[in-house]
Amino acid sequence: MDRLLPLVQNETLKIWRKKRFYVVVLVLIILIPIFTYAQMRISQTNAQNFKDWRNQVMNQINDYQSTLASDSVPEEWKRYRRIAVQQLQYYLDRDVNPSTPDAITFTRGFMSGSVTLFYPLLVLAIASDLVSGERTTGTIKMLLTRPVRRWKILLSKILAMMLYVSLIVVTSFVLCYLISGVFFGYEGWDAPVFTGFDVSGAQVDSTNVHAIPQWQYMIMQGGLIWFSSMTVALLALMVSVLLRGTAASIVTMMAAVITGTILGNMASSWESAKYFFSVNLDLTMYMNGSPPPIAGMSLPFSLTVLAIWAAISIVVSFLVFTKQDILN
């Protein structure tokens, strides 16, 4: 272990000096204000139209219900709307505003909305380059001819990657909170959030629903985002070990992630698509009670699917990396 620490230090330093993390921060700093502004416009419009948030929620419920009556709306959508109506009603009954305009609520929404595409993208910026970057520049030859076993090199890379994935999740939270707070105020830590909606079919079972303070909700959500980001990172590592090129790895992984999002939207009729990793990336939906895209999916199910994909990636990465001939 004492020999591993300097290796992790090396890998961490290389990612840092390559300025990969700067890019991540830069992207966040540019994107967050854009979404903040958009949210602010929505809040302003709502504030003009509705004096009270209760009116706004009721209006939303009415909207949804009228689409339920329409024949032109696909059954799939109706299911989502029915569930949303029940949840909104639940908030209304307990006199809790489901979308208070404050920095924490905004951050919560931003992070949970980013989990399927944006976080994977940020993670790929770091993970896809870890091994293939060394191959492209040829430094892998220096790295692997030192008296250190290959599995230790790869392990140190994975540990450094874990560190940066964690850092991405934390940094995105901090930046989002700081930037959006300028417009919405730095409040909302203790605002209650309902979690535990049990969605089955179009029915919402609210027997297990309980309110937790928003800060606690954020920690749980952050953990889930970390888990799905880490799965993406490990897969990206495997792909970059196999493909040897950074660009090819990023394209492949992005295609896989986007495929998952599209499949999730098309959904339902093809049930075995639920075993595909990227359909399961949005773990936060289980917390806020959105219906899963495919029947039979649940938080334990998605966690298991992601864990299996991650485990396979680790095994394949180690097997290939420790055995492969370095020819270029």
Partner: peptide, 19 residues
Amino acid sequence: EVYSYMSGWENLEHFARMQ
């Protein structure tokens, strides 16, 4: 082949840590 984004010294430190 050395890491072009680091200084010569940092490169040597990097490889020194491996032994």
